[in-house]
C-alpha cells in the first residue's frame, strides 16, 4: 500500500495504514480498536445474558458461561499455573455468580464483577494452600521450596530468546512484584480489560491502576530489558 501513495484507501482507513493479506488492518492501533469492538460486543452479550438470568431465565446461564468462562479460565490458568486448579476456581466463580444472580443490579457490568470474584477466590486458594503447606512443614519439620533462585533467572539475552524461558523469566519477575502491581499489569496486558474495568476489579481508582501497571512494567523492563516488549 505504501508503495502506491496515489491509490485511495480500500477500507476507509488512511492510506498509510498497512493491510495484512486478508485485508485486516495490521497497525497495532487499528487492530486494538477492532479487538475493543469485539470485546465490547462480548461484554454486551454477557451483560444481557446475566440480566436474563437474574430475571429467572435459567437457560441464559449457558450463554453467560460461554461469554465469561474462556476469559476467566485463561486468567486463572495464567495466575495459578495449574489447569486443575484453574478449572476448580472457574467452577467456584461461576457458582458464585449463580448464587448471586438475584443481587445483580439492572444495568451493571458482569465482567469486572466476575473477574473480581475469580481474583478473590484465587487469592483465597493461594492463602489456604500456603497455610496447608506451612502446617505440613511444621508437622514434618521439612522446608518448603524457597523462592526461585535469583541467579537461576539471570539468563543471557540469547537464551531468553527461547519463548519458554522468556515466559518463565517473566513469570518469575511477575512473582516478585507486589500483588497489586502484578494484578494491574495482568488484567490490562494479558486479559485486555480497560483501565476502568481493571480499576473496578481491583477496587482502586483508574489513576492508581495506571500507576501500578506502569510500575510493574518499569520493574519488568528493568529486569528483562527490551525483551519485555516482545511479550
Amino acid at each position: 500500500m505504501s508503495s502506491l501513495p496515489f491509490m485511495p484507501p480500500l477500507t476507509g482507513l488512511p492510506a498509510e495504514v498497512p493491510l495484512s493479506r486478508e485485508g485486516i488492518p495490521s497497525t497495532p492501533g487499528v487492530r486494538a480498536a477492532r479487538l475493543d469492538g469485539a470485546r465490547d460486543l462480548e461484554c454486551e452479550r454477557a451483560n444481557a445474558a446475566m440480566e436474563r438470568y437474574a430475571r429467572g431465565d435459567d437457560r441464559a446461564f449457558s450463554e453467560l458461561y460461554d461469554a465469561l468462562a474462556p476469559r476467566l479460565r485463561r486468567y486463572l490458568l495464567r495466575a495459578s499455573g495449574d489447569p486443575g486448579r484453574a478449572d476448580d476456581l472457574l467452577q467456584h466463580t461461576m457458582l458464585q455468580i449463580h448464587r448471586a444472580r438475584g443481587r445483580f443490579i439492572v444495568g451493571a457490568e458482569v465482567l469486572p464483577w466476575a473477574f473480581a470474584i475469580a481474583r478473590r477466590l484465587l487469592i483465597d486458594s493461594f492463602r489456604r494452600r500456603k497455610n496447608e503447606r506451612r502446617n505440613i512443614s511444621l508437622e514434618t519439620g521439612g522446608h518448603d521450596a524457597g523462592p526461585v533462585d535469583a541467579a537461576a533467572v539471570q539468563l543471557g539475552a540469547d537464551e531468553l530468546i527461547d519463548g519458554k524461558r522468556l515466559a518463565r523469566a517473566l513469570e518469575v519477575e511477575l512473582e516478585r512484584l507486589p500483588e497489586s502491581h502484578r494484578a494491574a499489569f495482568e488484567l490490562l496486558k494479558n486479559e485486555g480489560l480497560s483501565i476502568r474495568e481493571a480499576a473496578e476489579v481491583l477496587g482502586a481508582t483508574p489513576t492508581a491502576v495506571k500507576l501500578r501497571a506502569h510500575r510493574a512494567y518499569a520493574a519488568l523492563r528493568a529486569a528483562l530489558g527490551g525483551l519485555i516488549d516482545r511479550i
Binding site: 437474574a54 430475571r55 429467572g56 457458582l95 449463580h98 448464587r99 444472580r101 438475584g102 443481587r103 445483580f104
Partner: peptide
Amino acid sequence: ERSPTREQ
C-alpha cells in the same frame, strides 16, 4: 443448587 431470582 437453586438460587433466588431478583424478584424472589
